[in-house]
Nucleic acid binder design. Sequence first.
DNA 1: AACGGGCGCAACCGCCCAGCC
DNA 2: TGGCTGGGCGGTTGCGCCCGT
Length: 303
Amino acid sequence: MGRNPCCSKEGLNRGAWTAHEDKILTEYIKAHGEGSWRNLPKRAGLKRCGKSCRLRWLNYLRPDIKRGNISADEEELIIRLHKLLGNRWSLIAGRLPGRTDNEIKNYWNTNLGKKVQHHQNPSAAPGHNKSNGRVTRKREAQLATSAGTPSSHVVRTRAIRCSKVFINPHQKIEPFDRNREAKPSIDGECRPMTQTSAPSPIKALSENEDQNVHNKPFDFMVDFNMGEFCLSELLNSDFSDLVGLNYSNDSSNAISPSSDQPLIFSEEILQDWTSSHHAQQNVASNPHSLASFLDYGEEWLAE
DNA sequence: AACGGGCGCAACCGCCCAGCC
DNA sequence: TGGCTGGGCGGTTGCGCCCGT
């Protein structure tokens, strides 16, 4: 393409990192901190590409890295988050303290992808395909990653930084206008809420609930700090499919709206969740909080 | 013991986006 | 406003270990 490589590849080491290189990188970052990856190798005296250094640090050398032994809880959370977010490994990793996107991606490709695929289509169990071989297996993993999982209900965030969702306590909650609000915006982007502009992403179920909302204290700011996580899209996404491990394509679910009929979360539901789960805290730092949110959606749907 | 396939994981690649000038 | 750069992300590849034959 018309872009220069991030660094000259001539004379640079490639492949596996040696213990000596790891030591140099670790000590340099401890002394100077992260950042300026492009210049880091030269300054640290490493014959590596800056991106390579960054990757090595983030995925392997960082002191807070948790490696291996992914627990059942983490596994379940990964599955749920993947269902919700799709292949947004960095987002998923952000909800699993100490886990890296690379690790989760690998774990998905090698374990969970197969599991979920098996869940969807038991006849396509691993080993069922006799035309085995590395390429075939890899291709299977790719399919599981890119297209094998149901993506129609995945929240696509398109790298929109939507770090704060501010609900104006004095803003009148307008009756839901399906035509107008079916999509967050024309280009599908999620924009930060402000006090004066965008309408609340959370819509009242009815005028009565609207009244209830006004009778209750309603003042919260959800600092998701989830970066790319768009609350409005999350709330308008198809929760009946998002929650749980329901990977079936069972269309008989009476609650399941069509893709162009987003679920509507009432103020009460969200308020209840946010108050009971201390939404003012950073949700991103607490994976269980998000998981409980998913659970909450499940409970609500069961009603 | 030798060989080959399967598998897991670290690392690389190419693209995209935000921020800066 | 547009170009450039740094940083981040998801997809892909290659290597080495393990295990069955």
